[in-house]
Design a protein around this nucleic acid. Sequence first.
DNA 1: ATAATAATGTTGTAATTGCAACATGTAATT
DNA 2: AATTACATGTTGCAATTACAACATTATTAT
Lengths: 166, 166
Amino acid sequence: MLYNNIIDGICMKENEKTRYFDSVIYLMEQTVVYSKIKGAQFFTQLCMGVTIDQFVALDALYCNSDICQRDLSKLILKDRSNTGRILTILEEKGFITRAAETKGKRLVKKIYITDKGKELVEESIPKLRKAFFQVFEEVTDEEFDNLRNILNKLKTSLSKTTSIQI
Amino acid sequence: MLYNNIIDGICMKENEKTRYFDSVIYLMEQTVVYSKIKGAQFFTQLCMGVTIDQFVALDALYCNSDICQRDLSKLILKDRSNTGRILTILEEKGFITRAAETKGKRLVKKIYITDKGKELVEESIPKLRKAFFQVFEEVTDEEFDNLRNILNKLKTSLSKTTSIQI
DNA sequence: ATAATAATGTTGTAATTGCAACATGTAATT
DNA sequence: AATTACATGTTGCAATTACAACATTATTAT
């Protein structure tokens, strides 16, 4: 039996027509549409002065200190220009500071999360968890582990086959 | 043993700190960042006159004929304004036509895919499959089915707990 | 009958995005 | 030494997005 699991996701025999619209990739994209809207609405209602994307950058900085802008770019998967713009906003709001330093012999802008920034992360996380709690209610622990494993595989293979400018 | 699978994804004991940055939700979002860039680059190189989002709308129309704009909105998860804008472009390019008709007693704009539009979908699909082939190389059929099932659960539960204006 | 609500489509907008292009400095190659 | 390639950050931009607000018509509640 030959399957075309590639785009379709549904097991279809080789000569049948496939639809991108029904593919697993697109199902995942639609799931993310919802989760991004949910995340954005959450931070709007939270009124702590950051958007979800600004928060993600802060959260990445919370445990990855002593990194420069490009390193953060790689973590949050945004290009250097947009990462810089996010950091400008976070700096204006006092959640981070930036300082020109050397990395090897290279001049870079290193980023430091402030106490105010740390507080924001620490206060937001439990509320965020609460908001997303019910999303995983129907998902078993085993399914959860499976999901993480498969997503890691997909992300790895996509990162190898996609040219992204960071 | 108590797990907080909610945001973390990694099995963490209750009182440990959790990071959104390491959550499964965010892993999925990052995976989608790659797949969207890959899809966009694919259609840029294909030079058939449509973007990935315009193609998705066409693909949805290919098998869902006789629908109005709002119905398409629900399928492609874009709000009415943006769906209308995409359709304007597709109409200008001759891939669809629109006609004011009645749905029950309500006046709506029904969408009809043209032969040119059908051709575009039929020609693109095999190439698209080829481009995304390697992405799933390391994923077994079983994992693939798991992924689809879990994503469907997540999408369903997110759609219930997220207010989206369509 | 009247008012309130829902369905459908459009216009306007601020925010975000990926990308191209640039500037500046370092490393590698010739 | 000269040239080429890479690393890092910035500016500009066209495209896309979600959302608010509006217009119109139909449905429902009062």
